[in-house]
Design a protein around this nucleic acid. Structure first.
Lengths: 186, 186
DNA sequence: ATCATAATGTACCGAACGGTCCGGTTTGGA
DNA sequence: TCCAAACCGGACCGTTCGGTACATTATGAT
């Protein structure tokens, strides 16, 4: 049987899709196998810790993506308006204009949260912190910036929920425009 | 064996808790039985359609609660500020200041959405519609009111996600204060 | 070419799944 | 009191679950 994947990390985005569509409990190994094209033996070879290790790998992957495309640019871009605009672009790309749920947000809502609480908390904390820093650089009061950032991140999450619930990506797009406009209004 | 429940509707809030904690797929009949105190035979007696019928009953119950405590007051209270303030109170009570997830929002995020899409869509549509009506009565442009309402409902959802993710109810409380202040600012 | 290791698929395991079945008990109305 | 219907629990069913074991094949280094 020929090798099907170049490396472990090639499986992770496929795992992410299965978890997004099915949730943690609904993502059976049979579904994961079908999606990745790998048998159970292979899956356990790469993820000896089983399903939970797969989900951890997915969360780690998401975190790395956000670090590279959202948090770091927010921290390093000197111009706050530019930073916020770039964040908008990245976030819209990542969430496919609201068609793709935020897996980390979804995992937060039931007892799956307890399996991955550190990663879930860190994702949102890192985001709000990086965004608050950018806001401060743009002149927002350092006492006010964390609350502004928290508001924006929460509103992005809410827009994802509502866009999915109404099956209407325009909801997300409108929300992103408002969120960014508010961030840039000072 | 003595009757354990007065009527079917007494089971529904217990079912809601199991679904909120475990998600749809994770809410096994064993867990449901343990939570309700009923055996499988009894559960199927009341809900012959099985788990999906249980979830439908829960969603119906939530809808009735929101109709009575949120949508109808929004529609019937003449004073818009009063209506919005009452909504805030009801929503904070219902979501336990952010400690309790919105089951309908949670169901929207993965493929469980496809089982209950009408109920999920109606919940949010009815809410935004009733809130838009109240905003109009308070003087907001009829073209603008639906967008304001949509923003508020999405932001409430987002605040629930973030409060759960960070395990910090204060996040929800801050968000509710902001959301209501914005609604009342005109 | 050889060989150790990585990767693979699938049979198998015990447990748990949702759902069916049905005998037994309780309840309420006549 | 009697009786039909409602309610009850749990044994049972076939299927699926996550995970283990291991023979086989592919790969890369020597």
């Amino acid at each position: 049987m020929a090798r099907k994947i170049a490396e472990r990390s090639d499986i992770v985005p496929l795992l992410a899709e299965v978890f997004r569509e099915n949730g943690f409990e609904g993502a059976s190994l049979t579904l994961i196998g079908a999606r990745t094209g790998l048998g159970k033996g292979s899956l356990y070879h790469f993820f000896p810790g089983g399903k939970e290790e797969m989900a951890e790998a997915v969360l780690g992957d998401i975190e790395r993506w956000f670090e590279a495309h959202v948090y770091r640019p927010l921290r390093e871009t000197q111009d706050a308006a530019q930073a916020v605009g770039d964040m908008r672009q990245s976030v819209e790309d990542y969430f496919r204009s609201g068609r793709r749920a935020c897996l980390i947000g979804a995992f937060a809502l039931d007892n799956v949260r307890d399996r991955f609480s550190a990663k879930i908390r860190n994702y949102f904390a890192a985001w709000t912190e990086a965004l608050a820093g950018a806001l401060e650089r743009g002149g927002v009061d350092p006492k006010e910036a964390p609350y502004r950032a928290e508001e924006a991140v929460a509103n992005i999450q809410g827009a994802l929920v509502l866009a999915r619930a109404l099956d209407d990506p325009a909801v997300f797009e409108r929300a992103m425009a408002r969120i960014v406009a508010r961030l840039l209004a000072g």
